[in-house]
Design a protein around this nucleic acid. Structure first.
Length: 316
DNA sequence: GATTAATGCTAAA
DNA sequence: TTAGCCTTAATCT
């Protein structure tokens, strides 16, 4: 269940390793055979991310739209030219979690036998990419792609001028709870269940507040914090929302003992233990990192919502 | 080894 | 509203 940061890393990876290259496109699984024929043999012009969706534009202007959904993922492999072109560390896999390291599988100048249900395989002169388990995978014309993108709200990782204000107008339009609205891709594109829970905690907002009740200033702060922690996610390749001083182990503890946080340099979130990465997400029953109150959980709109009943009550 | 839940969305009913 | 995608890590026996 990758959120927007993973999709932006994917787009970067495709631009790094495939842009300008002619791609052989196939569907080993067979389910995308017709679509694959439409783009087979074309050069990839560019990759773009909008929220949780990725758009690959080919030289004849057709566009491959991919949404990873619940457990979709891309696997990569290739020669040294291919891995060397990656600016994000030549990952072996990008999906719900990112896997680093060598994929093997370019031994005889080509990709390995597809394992499992590979919906799409892309092969260039130097490497390959396999897509499994996507929710959406289709070839669109430019105008069809524009229709899809018009339905999406602003993406905090693109953060174009005016996007913050547009987000504020959209979320303040409805009495629907801000917890539900943050998951709506037409309000803002890219936030999922982890960032939703974490940003509401970071700003001390009650998840059940109606969007309409947000002050303009509160909506702006919400947008800015989402943009910040998601940009961290793009940099780190994982979701880490805790501040250094709120981490009980590892370097957070060292800082607590007096180590200068500045020593951490450009990688402030390097090697954060998983149990220290979040404030509330999947921490039901555990003590709040700020006040010790037991973290609560409830099902809302079919998804689990986590929050601190004290820090996010409006009384804290 | 078997079962379950999961950082979503789509399409059928 | 519900099934489906068909993977993976964590949890259970």
């Amino acid at each position: 269940m990758p959120e927007g940061h993973s999709v932006h890393r994917l787009a970067r990876q495709f631009n790094d390793v495939f842009a300008g290259s002619v791609l052989a496109v196939s569907s080993p699984q067979g389910k995308f055979a017709a679509g694959a024929r439409l783009i087979d043999g074309q050069a990839l012009e560019r990759a773009e991310a909008h929220g949780k969706q990725m758009f690959l534009t080919f030289s004849h202007e057709l566009i491959l739209r991919v949404h990873l959904g619940l457990y979709g993922a891309w696997d990569f492999g290739g020669d040294s030219t291919f891995t060397g072109a990656s600016s994000i560390g030549a990952p072996r896999r990008i999906g719900e979690q990112e896997v680093a390291g060598d994929s093997g599988g370019w031994g005889h100048g080509g990709p390995p036998e597809p394992k499992g249900a590979v919906r799409v395989r892309l092969v260039s002169a130097h490497g390959w990419a396999d897509l499994r388990g996507p929710t959406a995978c289709e070839v669109l014309t430019p105008s069809e792609a524009a229709v899809v993108r018009r339905k999406l709200g602003p993406d905090p990782l693109n953060n174009l001028p005016g996007d913050g204000g547009e987000f504020g107008r959209r979320i303040r339009k409805s009495i629907t709870s801000i917890a539900l609205q943050l998951m709506k891709q037409e309000v803002l594109a890219g936030v999922g269940n982890v960032y939703r829970a974490e940003v509401l905690f970071r700003l001390g907002l009650d998840p059940m507040r109606p969007g309409k009740s947000l002050q303009v200033e509160e909506a702006r702060a919400l947008w800015e914090d989402i943009a910040k922690i998601m940009a961290d996610g793009v940099r780190d390749g994982r979701i880490i929302t805790t501040e250094l001083g709120d981490r009980p182990s590892g370097l957070g503890a060292a800082v607590g003992r007096g180590l200068d946080a500045a020593l951490l340099g450009s990688r402030p979130n390097k090697d954060v233990p998983v149990q220290d990465a979040h404030y509330v997400y999947k921490r039901v029953g555990q003590p709040c990192r700020h006040c010790g109150t037991v973290i609560a959980m409830a099902e809302l709109g079919g998804r689990k919502l986590y929050w601190c009943p004290h820090c996010q009550s409006g009384k804290a």
